[in-house]
């Protein structure tokens, strides 16, 4: 009985794996097709950065995109900390790029929803990216998450949530998780006022090696053209 069950499961798995293998290229091409709808966009929203050592306010920002690979984030007049990996928010580029080997990595669940895992490996050794794992909603043909390991900047993750602009395949929210290096000012340089609360205030359980930027978009202007000046 037990033996039978095991062999059944094994068999079923085989079928699913086969089915995956069958459809992964198709899924990728469908995702690419959906992306191709977008020539450019201008998205307004806010950027909220959470890094343990950074206490900076959420800030209004505008993101500009122009196919195939131009992306920039502009903030208002104030001072802003724009995550450098922002360029990597351009997951489109990654997907569209044909210089990657696409490997089916099975399935997973995100918020109860079944997703397909795709691993992308660069063909070229010199590529900054070592490996990227993309989580794709096979029904909506949307990228929900990606995890990319780079040579220089460690691993970063992107998590996309969709809403109003789901038809365009544009997220309402992107959470960008990146590695941060420890920030340490030399003691004595700042002559700080010690109010005696430092010890108790040191938050426990905060992961100091990870930072997060949360971009929430309230409005997209799609395919209306974006001037070149925004990418300088």
């Amino acid at each position: 009985m037990l033996k039978k069950s095991i062999s059944l499961i094994f068999f079923l798995n085989m079928i699913i794996a086969y089915a995956h293998a069958q459809t992964i290229d198709k899924l990728m091409s469908e995702v690419r097709k959906k992306m191709a709808l977008i020539k450019d966009y201008q998205a307004t929203g806010t950027m909220k950065t959470s890094v343990s050592f950074l206490k900076i306010p959420a800030e209004p920002m505008t993101m500009y995109y122009k196919a195939p690979d131009k992306l920039s984030i502009k903030t208002s007049n104030g001072l802003s900390f724009v995550p450098k990996g922002a360029v990597n928010l351009n997951i489109n580029k990654l997907i569209a790029d044909k210089t990657f080997t696409v490997i089916d990595a099975g399935t997973d669940r995100i918020a109860g929803k079944m997703v397909r895992l795709v691993k992308l490996l660069p063909l070229d050794d010199k590529n900054e990216i070592i490996l990227s794992t993309v989580y794709i909603d096979p029904v909506e043909k949307l990228i929900l998450k990606s995890r990319t390991t780079t040579k220089q900047n460690g691993t970063f993750e992107l998590e996309m949530s969709y809403g109003k602009y789901v038809n365009w395949g544009l997220p309402d929210k992107i959470v960008f998780i990146f590695n941060t290096k420890d920030y340490k000012l030399p003691k004595g340089i700042t002559f700080d006022f010690d109010d005696g609360t430092a010890k108790s205030a040191a938050q426990a359980g905060v992961d100091k090696s990870k930072g997060q930027a949360e971009l929430t978009f309230s409005q997209y202007v799609v395919n209306k053209g974006v001037e070149e000046k925004f990418f300088k």
């Binding site: 050592f53 950074l54 206490k55 104030g78 001072l79 000012l185 700042t190 205030a201 040191a202």
Partner: peptide, 21 residues
């Protein structure tokens, strides 16, 4: 004038605070 950055050592931690203009 613009927003201001405060570089601070608090206990064992270093912090950067941003205060809007």
């Amino acid at each position: 004038t613009n927003d201001m950055l405060i570089f601070r050592v608090k206990g064992d931690e270093s912090q950067i605070l941003q205060i809007t203009a």
